[in-house]
Design a binder for these strands. Structure first.
Lengths: 135, 135
DNA sequence: CTACAAGTTCAAGTTGACTTGAAGTCAAGT
DNA sequence: ACTTGACTTCAAGTCAACTTGAACTTGTAG
């Protein structure tokens, strides 16, 4: 496996070195090997960072991400906690996907109807996407 | 139209009154009518709040949301600025939807393969979803 | 008339996710 | 031997998005 310096990892993941150290400090990234005090990484860290980036964009907190990776050592068996968390997140993802599709449709509609801003055309658009009950 | 107090709006939108005042202060909500100093709202504010909630969950900042509503009065025509912003956001939405689907698949796969946490099964799963080139 | 709940403003505090700065370490090159 | 550049730690700072608290006003109910 190729060994990477912290700045190489940062460059490849498109983040700062300070972010990597921060993630390590809050236990979202594992402690890497050290050579004379310096961190050296295995390329696998890039997959983990990619996962973190995506899940973050989707509204997971670093705390939740940490749980996804670690699944704390409390009374309930690891597998149960992890599966519950994963199942819950799958449902959240589905909701998010539905909403993202709605917002996209809303934006497309907002362009189509020719208004110059969203404020002007809220009335002619929004009502198509949100039930009155929800409001 | 029905007139709503700030606490009615808060209750129906599932947020705090302080949030409503905050939104008004940063110009994400318009200044409502006042009756003896107290804010009174038209039900339309609920649609606007629903839109804010969804777009926020999808990673829009309040600043961006404010732009979506207002489309600043700079040199470029209103319609052009709004359309550019909307088009850009549609592309972002599509990316987000793709990613949400990927994360969902990843979670499903993570459950299917029987590992007790994501850390343990990153290797057997993640590689299916992220190209080596991207890493 | 007084009490009270619900409203008001404004300044300061909080939380999450980082970033920045100061001060020091370390190996490689000249 | 010394400089350079990339690293290290740790504390403090920043930014967005709210929340909280203190001090005050106002219409309605008893």
């Amino acid at each position: 496996m190729e060994a990477l310096t912290i700045s190489e990892v940062a460059r490849r993941a498109g983040i700062r070195t300070s972010t990597i150290r921060y993630y390590e400090s809050i236990d979202v990234l594992p402690q890497p090997q050290r050579v004379s005090g310096r961190r050296i990484y295995d390329a696998a860290v890039l997959e983990r960072l990619a996962f973190i980036q995506v899940t973050q964009k989707l509204g997971f907190s670093l705390n939740e991400i940490q749980l996804l990776f670690h699944t704390q050592e409390d009374q309930t068996p690891l597998s149960e906690r992890w599966q519950a968390l994963a199942n819950q997140k799958i449902v959240e993802m589905e909701g998010l996907i539905r909403q993202a599709v709605d917002v996209k449709e809303l934006l497309i509609e907002g362009l189509r109807c020719g208004c110059t801003n969203l404020f002007d055309c809220m009335d002619c658009v929004v009502t198509n996407y949100y039930e009155p009950t929800h409001l």
